[in-house]
Design a protein around this nucleic acid. Structure first.
Lengths: 207, 207
DNA sequence: TCTTATATCCCGTATTTCCGGTATTTTTCA
DNA sequence: TGAAAAATACCGGAAATACGGGATATAAGA
């Protein structure tokens, strides 16, 4: 029997997956959680074979969470469920060492398949994910830069429309410092103005 | 018997809702669709009592779609299912005359309740939606500006990091014209630089 | 047909951002 | 504790944006 955990904050999705897994008698549902914290707590008690993890959670960035769980439980197979079809997100998640990536518009069968594949030690990506991942000329970055606490703060204020000097006032720092943070952000995202960053930051829910 | 249509592009969500509705014998599921076009086509043939409509569809903006359907079928009760908890989205959808708004992180019961309420002629909002809608000091705009085709085009290019003169070249128009469009956009969104716009445009999937 | 919305173009000025550096002080964490 | 990462601060010049107008042509809708 394959023991499975589900983490997804939408009860309706939980229902759908539950239902799907119930049709297979080699799979046993061992727990259902709606956020990162509950999932981590539950894992501390018992370790299932597979975790179906939605990366849009209310409390923690799913990308971060997948990394944490991967590091803490190397044996656990993690299958990420996601609506994100951006290469940057897929790459980031896979780099964290998860075992599968399935888009939410996939049919239920792909989840069943994914479970079996990862149990067999393989990496599973749904068809669409493979297409995106292998496609070179996908515009947009193919990575999500890691930004610091302060950079995030500044990015947030920039996004709200504040100028550098306004931000400086708010944070009680020199406008020069704000400028430096902007520069660093632009370098990290490999763009030459802030506008391009905001799209990605919003899209990838960095803010 | 209450006849219901479901439109959602995630098979797992479809499963979840199907399952939920199956527990109620006063509700009959009459059709399941994954995009706007199929939904419109199906409605042309037969009109159910209630449409459960996800507003994040692959082909059409759900906000636009809800308006179209409302105008074409005034008797049909439309319940919007959405992950958007931004006031601007909720307001826009409600202004289109839909009969219900339920967030996807609601429990299944709220959907059942919503169906009964709208059938009774009431407007239904899930608890969280009511809180957001009634909360005055919600930062962010409480409306989604209507932007023209050209403005959208320019906004898209601005978001990709192009300068006004680069955009002008691409579109074979004067840089002055691009500047004018920027000005108009800023006025519509009621902000004083483009950065603030990009967040909303990305968030609300205007691009 | 008339009005309105949309798209186009122009100018000057003030403000802001971007870019190229350099450099010191704190934190963080291994 | 010691090295690396993060946060801080500064300068000058070039480039771009924002803001204040004003103006015309054309397409779309009532």
């Amino acid at each position: 029997m394959i023991q499975v955990y589900i983490t997804d904050d939408h009860p309706i999705v939980q229902e759908g997956i539950k239902n799907l897994l119930a049709t297979r008698d080699e799979i046993a549902l061992k727990g259902v959680f709606q956020n990162g914290k509950d999932t981590i707590d539950a894992l501390a008690g018992e370790e299932p074979d597979v975790l179906l993890l939605d990366i849009n959670l209310p409390d923690i960035s799913g990308i971060e969470l997948s990394k944490q769980i991967r590091d803490a439980y190397p044996e656990l197979k993690i299958i990420v469920l996601s609506v994100h079809n951006e290469k940057a997100v897929i790459s980031s998640v896979l780099q964290n060492g998860v075992n599968g990536y399935v888009l939410k518009n996939s049919i239920g069968d792909e989840i069943i398949q994914a479970i079996h594949k990862v149990i067999d030690g393989e990496l599973y990506m749904c068809k669409q994910t493979r297409d995106i991942y292998e496609n070179q000329d996908n515009n947009g970055p193919d990575f999500i830069p890691k930004i610091t606490r302060r950079e995030k703060e500044i990015l947030q204020l920039v996004t709200e429309g504040f100028t550098s000097s306004q931000i400086a006032e708010k944070l009680f720092i020199s406008p020069y410092t704000v400028e430096t943070h902007r520069k660093n952000l632009m370098e990290k995202f490999d763009v030459n103005n802030m506008t391009a960053i905001i799209k990605y930051a919003t899209e990838f829910k960095l803010l």
